[in-house]
């Protein structure tokens, strides 16, 4: 039986909402609703620390923020949310972290001045300040092991941090177009168990329904979900892919090498 009631813990909705992150919450709520599941959104902000609040959630989302906000948030995340969040994801509850949220899950962030800002340490990765910002359309072929129905994700990135995955941590996928974690390795994001982190920022879920469904499925304890009519979502996806994020020839070869077929303009 699929549970009819799920709770989404939205971490730091006030501080981490720079690029239309609200769209992600909307996408999860709406896709749950269309399947007869009610998804209650619980806002978890600075200072909130009750363990029962965190353990009552079926899964979590954390968006991107400005630099100033990130300092406040890092401290709060480690001291007040850490244990509860670690327990929840160990129990298989999904956590989707975007951009600054992605960086906060690592061991630390090294600023340009050499200051080390500690992160939650949930994933074995760290981020270093980069000189040039990576800004632009980003297209990713996700790790087949994650099992997304549609393995290609599309969106936008805007970050100056370069994220380095430590030994053994799998990237979320390979960059088809754009910069990704460091603009160089071809790696984008990271995933481990029920934690997915990515530089695809802002409203990535409306346009990537298969990732929304991954979150919902994981939050529902792995129960398969019925398919929905995604014609509006697909139109927006196609538009984004065709206009902004055509895979470069190089990455197309790379993908062919990995056995992923990429159709032109789709």
């Amino acid at each position: 039986m699929i549970p009819v009631q799920l709770r989404l813990g939205h971490l730091y909705p006030r501080e981490m909402n720079l690029y239309g992150d609200r769209g992600n919450i909307l996408a999860l709520v709406r896709r749950a609703q269309r399947r007869g599941i009610s998804l209650e959104v619980v806002e978890i902000g600075l200072g909130d620390s009750s363990t029962s609040l965190l353990s009552s959630c079926s899964g979590f989302f954390m968006g991107g923020g400005q630099d100033l906000d990130q300092g406040n948030v890092a401290e709060d995340l480690i001291s007040r949310k850490g244990p509860g969040l670690v327990a929840a994801v160990s129990a298989g509850k999904p956590l989707l972290a975007v951009c600054a949220g992605f960086q906060l899950l690592g061991t630390h962030y090294l600023t340009a001045a050499g200051t080390r800002i500690p992160g939650l340490g949930l994933l074995p990765l760290h981020t270093e300040a980069g000189r040039r910002r990576l800004v632009g359309n980003l297209m990713v072929a996700t790790d087949p092991a994650l099992g997304l129905r549609d393995p290609i994700l599309v969106g936008f990135e805007n970050h100056s941090g370069r994220t380095i995955l430590h030994q053994g941590l799998r990237p979320l996928g390979r960059v088809m177009h754009g910069g990704g974690n460091d603009g160089d390795s071809g790696q984008e994001g990271a995933w481990q168990g029920s934690v997915v982190a990515t530089y695809l920022h802002g409203p990535l879920l409306p346009k990537n329904p298969s990732l929304s469904d991954w979150w919902l499925r994981t939050a529902a304890g792995g129960h398969p979900l019925e398919n929905l009519d995604d014609s509006l979502e697909d139109a927006a996806r196609k538009e984004a892919m065709a206009l902004g994020a055509r895979p470069t020839r190089m990455s197309r070869w790379r993908l062919l090498g990995r056995g992923l077929v990429v159709r032109k303009g789709s």
Binding site: R30, L232, K238, E239, A240
Partner: peptide
Amino acid sequence: RAHELALRLAY
């Protein structure tokens, strides 16, 4: 990006 806008309106 008309379709992105249409998706926003639908949501």
